[in-house]
Design a protein around this nucleic acid. Sequence first.
DNA 1: GGTAAATTGTAACAAATGTTACAAAATCAG
DNA 2: CTGATTTTGTAACATTTGTTACAATTTACC
Lengths: 225, 225
Amino acid sequence: MAADLSILSDSPLFKSISAEEILKVLERVPYKIRKFKSGSLIAQTGDRLLSFHLILSGSVKGEMVDYAGRIIKIEDVHAPHAIAAAFLFGDRNIFPVNVVTTSDTRILVIDKDDFLRLLGNDKRILSNFLDMMSNRSQFLSDKIKFLNFKTIKGKLAQFILQRTTPERPSFRLEMTQSDLADYFGVARPSVARAVGELEDEGCIEASGKQILVTDRKRLLQMTDD
Amino acid sequence: MAADLSILSDSPLFKSISAEEILKVLERVPYKIRKFKSGSLIAQTGDRLLSFHLILSGSVKGEMVDYAGRIIKIEDVHAPHAIAAAFLFGDRNIFPVNVVTTSDTRILVIDKDDFLRLLGNDKRILSNFLDMMSNRSQFLSDKIKFLNFKTIKGKLAQFILQRTTPERPSFRLEMTQSDLADYFGVARPSVARAVGELEDEGCIEASGKQILVTDRKRLLQMTDD
DNA sequence: GGTAAATTGTAACAAATGTTACAAAATCAG
DNA sequence: CTGATTTTGTAACATTTGTTACAATTTACC
């Protein structure tokens, strides 16, 4: 049976590899496709992670359960991206979160050893996978840099500076203030307050989700404190 | 010339590979060895990163310069570990920090393409490198979890819990409160205050740098808030 | 276009942390 | 041992952020 694997062309793992080639590669590697209804628990925190998982269709979320039993959403992953790829290798091969499907979902599963063989056999896939891992690390590093800024205004200023240049001083915020608050690890009204203060001080002008930097120098000064 | 490469047996990249085999592998891969005096600037933030770097002897530190021109030490790397391996791949191949030697240092350098070939040719080295990248991500994830604890008491509780078990409830703090404050990214007197409060509440007993956990359950409860 | 839902702005107040300062205690160097 | 230096405990007060609540605004959907 020829399951629908066409989406793999859009996956970072198979970047710049044609659909036919992908199929040819997969013929030489044992894999399974697992199907889940929306809302299924795919894996729990602490489960052994022994296979590479890639979402073919649908989406999942990662959740943590804290000591008080509260559930905290960590992140969403959509097709055609991989799940917990950073935990397949290394010294701690366990799911760091509960994984729950948020829609009907099909997942491509390749055992770790087979996956390693796949990487060894195809330079492009290897290179793509290394890129994925690196990007993940870089993302996490950036996040840490943010969390280390002391004030919310500092975090916000840094965030805005990264998305603009003196030549293109305007950008569109593609997330809600609530998302931004989660990203910064602060409360949502505090973000709104910080935005308001940056406006009052004449550093930016915000209309809806469009943000215009009007005093880049002052913004820069806020990133240390 | 036979440079001293024996230390490579201890490197995570060549884990469980014999010294002779390592030499054999390196014969098939172009590499260079660069030597630096203590205190040399090896790379600056933003420099293109196009080669794999591994410290053969000596040590380096990564430094950031903030807007005010202050220098902040980010981390130390010693032989036989790799430098900025997570930034060799991915979409941003630049040094994230200034790299400065902290002692006389020799560094093994392999161009990215050659390094990729090396990974493709040897399953064990590939697996080791993936482990290194994964461990890095896992380390960063943990650090983020740490920084996300809202209260200083929460961070401190987590810190203490990580260093004790129900069986060995006591440990010696090998750093000053000032170091701890830097690690948490908070002010020094705030750490002192948090320690005092944990004592008052009967969770721990601190005498000098020796810390004894007396109510592990309560400590656990503090790690959420 | 109109209604429901999500997002944003704002305020009052509580809680946590920072800042500064100083004295007590511990550690170090000779 | 002793004086100097570092580290720690503590306090008063300022600042920042969180919490809660609600209204205004925007967005999504029918």
